[in-house]
């Protein structure tokens, strides 16, 4: 119930964005999941995020998780990357997922680190794994892969066995270290 109220508040504040809440999954028997997601255009992400954090009807104080899906080859997908923001309200105990779609050649999303500090490392991880740049991030470096790694390993066009990095790995010898 509380989620529906939050979505009404969001739609009332941003009528021009035409925000629609959809269930994350619909089961074959017609039941729809009660987990809802909203598509947000990247240029309005920070406004929407700040509103969702501060409005008394929404109060999403916590960014529970930030991840990304590469929708290459996904059924009926028009866009390539979907950055997914899992929001959590401790006050109202409800969740909402925001999806921001971006495409090659320059997938850039505004950073939400100034709104939720906890976005810092998840944004770095998404950059590391998918090559999505977060404009305004204080320290956007690779976090899990080595700094000299060239590719983005969780993209769907990156093969499971890698592109030969293991064979070409530069051996650090005692003399050169």
């Amino acid at each position: 119930m509380a989620t529906a109220e939050a979505i009404r508040a969001l739609q009332g504040r941003f009528p021009e964005l035409d925000l629609v809440a959809r269930p994350l999954v619909t089961y074959p028997d017609g039941r729809a999941s009660d987990q809802l997601w909203v598509r947000v255009p990247p240029e309005h992400l920070c406004d929407v995020a700040r509103f969702l954090r501060d409005d008394p009807h929404t109060r999403f104080e916590q960014l529970c998780d930030l991840t990304c899906i590469d929708y290459l080859n996904y059924p009926d997908a028009a866009e390539r990357f979907g950055a997914i923001y899992a929001l959590l309200s401790l006050t109202h105990n409800h969740r909402l997922w925001l999806k921001v779609f971006v495409n090659d050649p320059d997938p850039t999303v505004p950073s939400v680190t100034s709104i939720w500090w906890g976005a810092e490392w998840p944004e770095r991880e998404v950059y590391d794994m998918f090559g999505i740049r977060f404009a305004g991030h204080p320290d956007l470096r690779r976090i899990l892969m080595p700094q000299n790694f060239k590719d983005y390993p969780l993209r769907k066009d990156y093969p499971l066995t890698g592109k030969g990095e293991r064979e070409d790995f530069e051996v650090v010898t005692r003399e050169s270290a």
């Binding site: 994350l24 089961y27 998780d65 996904y74 059924p75 997914i84 899992a86 997922w97």
Partner: peptide, 24 residues
């Protein structure tokens, strides 16, 4: 089915959740 789902458990360390996407 084609779709996405999230479920989190309270484990010893905190919220351990999985966000799954399925293409069927």
């Amino acid at each position: 089915p084609v779709g996405e789902a999230y479920f989190a458990n309270e484990t010893a360390n905190g919220e351990l959740g999985y966000y799954l996407a399925s293409d069927g």
